[in-house]
């Protein structure tokens, strides 16, 4: 298999990469981990005239803790999440979901920002970024801008990135107190794209009732499905089987999953119901500090 011919640039600095993007814009593609773009090129589902390979930009391969935020540069590989000491403690949702992204060899090269930019509707990281209210920092000819996940993910594999823009960094806000999280996913085989995956975030009040919750799903819509109406049912309630069932039911009812060769819409709805209940239960245990708190 051979991709269609392309011209190849390997810029040595972010500025150079941005210049190349401005010059070639529409006809160019950024090559990050290549774990999604490579297959598309080989099968000629994509045939850009120019590839701008950002793999030499070691200075944007960072994952750092800064001002309470977790900041992840464009070239940080997915594999670094699993090896980090900081992430499991403070951003356990990312840590818990990372092993579901393909397989170890793919995560050695695949980047966190590349997964967000690619915006596969069954990918884990877009749902995680939505559930944790991440900020996406974008560089382009007009300078820097930032986007919230709900603005960034527009449709099936489509984001608000313009052809001349680089997703330079994703920032995860500081963890909140009395908060528990959980990632659960069902796929045909471990490492396959999710049929349904859910991120649950549950924050308790001092008195043990529920202050706020988030339920965000992958695999059920063109963009991460943020079931706000369902999660809001939990605010002020006792976090228990009854309130969790109500939220899970609502999330399933308001979802509009598709049917495909992998699963029917009815099965996906069933998974939303079951996984939501379980994920909320797990998040609750962690919010209460039961168990060791780690995923």
């Amino acid at each position: 298999m051979k991709p269609a011919p392309f011209e190849y640039f390997a810029p040595e600095s972010v500025e150079e990469a941005l210049d190349l993007l401005e010059q070639h814009g529409d006809t160019a593609k950024i090559l990050a981990g290549g774990q999604s773009l490579g297959p598309l090129l080989n099968m000629r589902l994509a045939s850009p005239e120019v590839l701008i390979d950002i793999n030499r930009l070691e200075d944007i391969a960072y994952i750092r803790h800064d001002d309470g935020y977790l900041k992840i540069g464009a070239l940080a590989r997915q594999r670094t999440i699993e090896r980090s000491l900081l992430i499991p403690k403070s951003w356990p949702l990312l840590y818990e979901a990372a092993p579901y992204i393909g397989h170890p060899t793919l995560r050695n090269r695949g980047t966190i920002c590349g997964s967000l930019a690619h915006a596969d509707p069954a990918a884990e990281l877009p749902a995680i970024a939505t559930a944790l209210d991440a900020e996406l920092h974008i560089l382009g000819p007009e300078g820097e801008r930032s986007a919230r996940p709900e603005e960034f993910f527009e449709s099936y594999m489509t984001t608000s990135l313009k052809p001349e823009e680089l997703l330079a960094e994703v920032r995860f806000p500081p963890p909140r107190p009395r908060t528990g999280v959980a990632w659960l996913e069902v796929a045909r085989r471990h490492g396959d794209f999710a049929l349904v995956g859910v991120a649950a975030v549950l924050t308790l009040r001092e008195d043990g009732t529920c202050e706020a919750a988030r339920l965000v799903y992958t695999g059920v819509a063109p963009v991460p499905y943020d079931a706000r109406e369902a999660a809001e049912l939990l605010a002020g309630e006792q976090p228990d089987g009854e309130s969790f069932d109500a939220a899970a039911e609502k999330a399933a009812e308001l979802s509009e999953p598709g049917s495909d060769v992998h699963a029917s819409a009815a099965y996906r709805r069933h998974l939303i119901r079951v996984l939501s209940r379980r994920a909320l239960g797990k998040a609750l245990e962690r919010a209460r500090g039961e168990g060791d708190g780690s995923p």
Binding site: Y8, A10, Q35, G38, N42, P104, T105, R109
Partner: peptide, 11 residues
């Protein structure tokens, strides 16, 4: 470890 079918020799 890396998959050599989705890496290009120039890389």
């Amino acid at each position: 470890s890396a998959r050599s079918c989705i890496l290009y020799a120039v890389q």
